[in-house]
């Protein structure tokens, strides 16, 4: 199974968002005043929505080293400090949420195959419910999903480091289906299905055997 380190700043409910299953084992690494984690045992580094970007900046060299070992990071947060190589997250309030629609740009790994993009666009009839802001990237070929104004929303960056960074513009994601298939039809269910596509992508890339 994949071994994932989840960076935790103890926000309410985080322990329920990443529950280990046959595909992926999650370990929550809890931030403290002198946070100095060891990532050696992990394949995936996971930065959830609502993370502590002060602590992440302090360990940015460790994160860069982890990625340059060819490993994978999922970041589903709005990173206002400069710890993500080659990519910057920005937010403005110059565009109305009612006008937000996403489109697939470069889906090299067919991650959106079988995914209902309309559920990313609307939840209970409301648009602009998911991601916040957008990503300024030095790797334009890495844009998987963009918004109405062609601003990058999901990035699959294989060139800023020797590893892979999967970045959303503060688009929350978690192992919401807990590694099983659900017939649930809400937008959060679709986000959970897309997350499983990300996990399956890394499982295949890393040639992991699921027992």
């Amino acid at each position: 199974m994949l071994k994932a380190a989840v960076i935790s700043n103890n926000i309410e409910g985080i322990e329920n968002m990443f529950i280990s299953n046959p595909k992926i084992n999650y370990t929550l690494l809890e931030i403290t005043a002198n946070f100095n984690p060891d990532f050696a045992d992990y394949d995936v580094l996971l930065v959830p929505n609502g993370s502590d970007n002060i602590a992440l900046f302090k360990i940015r060299d460790k994160i860069a080293q982890f990625l340059n070992e060819g490993k994978v990071m999922f970041c589903f947060d709005g990173w206002f400090t400069n710890w993500v190589p080659g990519n910057k997250w920005i937010i403005d309030n110059n565009h109305k949420t009612i006008d937000i629609r996403y489109h697939v740009v470069n889906d090299k790994y067919k991650l959106f195959e079988g995914i209902d993009l309309d559920k990313f666009n609307f939840s209970h009839g409301i648009s602009g419910w998911w991601a916040c802001g957008f990503i300024e990237t030095t790797q334009p070929e890495s844009v998987l999903l963009a918004d109405t104004w062609n601003r990058p929303i999901i990035i699959i960056d294989e060139h800023s480091t020797r590893g892979i960074m999967v970045l959303t513009a503060s688009g929350p994601m978690a192992d919401l289906l807990f590694g099983t298939n659900s017939e649930g039809q809400t937008s959060w269910d679709e986000i959970g299905r897309f997350y499983q596509k990300l996990v399956d992508f890394v499982v295949a890339r890393n040639k992991i055997v699921i027992l």
Partner: peptide, 27 residues
């Protein structure tokens, strides 16, 4: 009281609030 969360940060840094608020990192 600040947990490094982006929306706590953007609130306190907004020009209309930046002179009223100080972010106190929880540690």
């Amino acid at each position: 009281l600040f947990n490094g969360v982006w929306s706590q940060y953007t609130f306190a840094k907004a020009p209309k609030y930046v002179n009223i608020f100080e972010l106190i990192y929880v540690y």
